[in-house]
Design a binder for these strands. Structure first.
Lengths: 202, 202
DNA sequence: CCTGCGATTGACCGACCGGTCAAATCTTGA
DNA sequence: TCAAGATTTGACCGGTCGGTCAATCGCAGG
């Protein structure tokens, strides 16, 4: 768990992780090769393995570093704030993550698609607990009549699904919209705001 | 394009495609191996290549066979039917596809995630045309005041995202819900019906 | 200048990959 | 029955994979 010490170690470790993110998110774990990652990173393959003991170690480092960032917006949902605004802020922040970090989203999607072999424990542990905690907050808001009553966990699922879709299925989104509209995110933001406002209105 | 002729060819071709679906949907194209597929199919590797000329040919056969099935529910949306009921029927049918054919959904997700290298042409052609056609129908319905005005293509995206989520992220869904509720689909169906009824209500 | 250690790499290894091929086996119809 | 074609497979090939290792490079401190 100790962080890199020298400047060179710091820099190369980050370079490798960034290159690995690029390659893993595009080809999946088994589809990615160390040679590809090394080439993108501008390093030799043995040099990669000087900083990380194995291909899997790079992947794990990437995933564990990512999970916190990914869950932060949900953690930030304030139980004492205005329910609709808190939820919409979460939707907005999550959509921004898709727009600004599509590679991270796809890396995560790849991992889950393949049965989450390397992060199942975290998903069944931390993620499960966090969602259940926030679902309780949502249920309280519904009990207080501040948002409409829907299944709280499926509400969270729908936020994930709708926002991540724009990163994970980027190619499809652009192909279906056609070459006319290059950036779908502004319209997506408006659409999702409408959707959740109407869903949650009491 | 000619279909298998003898009974044996028919049976083995299907066996291979089913095994390939199992393996490709779980590991992606590059992550899957012919040996794995052969083992699942109960055939030898050279025997696989007697029926399909290459690994890629199996994958393409799978994808092209799948796309029609996948798009049929959207085609079935009747421009002369009741707007809300037509849309909800589409949502329901799409959710049933996720429940009954999760491997197909994951295969498709894998392909799109990796940039759709093998079906980009179809996506930019047939799929684009079909969605634009149906978007025009939705726009007409909005003009007639029969459903609320939202961006029609993003409406279709949201149906895809919300329904496919339950197949593609199956592991996450089950982990987050916990071992208590084994089948999320009934609740998902109710949730999505509520969501789209409220979104579309005029 | 040298010395010592962190950083880097060319060459290589065994395993596995997609695919080939000749030979063997099975099925069918005259 | 039996020849001919369809089907099946063990053995194998060249290439690529993740990973190793000894040798080298480069730089900071004395």
């Amino acid at each position: 768990m100790s962080k890199p010490r020298t400047k060179i170690q710091q820099r190369n470790s980050e370079t490798i992780l960034d290159a690995a993110l690029e390659v893993f998110s595009q080809h999946g774990f088994r589809g990615a090769t160390l040679d590809q990652i090394a080439e993108v990173a501008g390093l030799s393959k043995p040099n990669l393995l000087y900083y990380y003991p194995s291909k899997e170690a790079i992947h794990v480092a990437l995933l564990s570093g990512l999970l916190d960032t990914w869950l932060d917006p949900l953690r930030a949902m304030d139980p004492e704030g205005d329910p609709v605004e808190e939820l919409l802020a979460y939707v907005r922040r999550k959509l921004e993550l898709s727009r600004d970090f599509p590679r991270e989203s796809r890396l995560f999607a790849n991992e889950i698609l393949q049965g989450a072999p390397r992060i199942r424990a975290v998903i069944e542990g931390d993620l499960h607990a966090l969602v259940q905690e926030k679902a309780a907050v949502l249920t309280r808001w519904m009990d207080e009549g501040r948002i409409a009553r829907v299944h709280p966990v499926h509400l969270i699922f729908s936020i994930w699904a709708l926002t991540q879709h724009y990163a994970d299925f980027d190619v499809q989104v652009h192909a279906v919209l056609g070459p006319g509209e290059p950036d779908p995110y502004p319209e997506a933001g408006r659409y999702l705001e409408t959707l959740f406002r109407r869903l949650l209105a009491v």
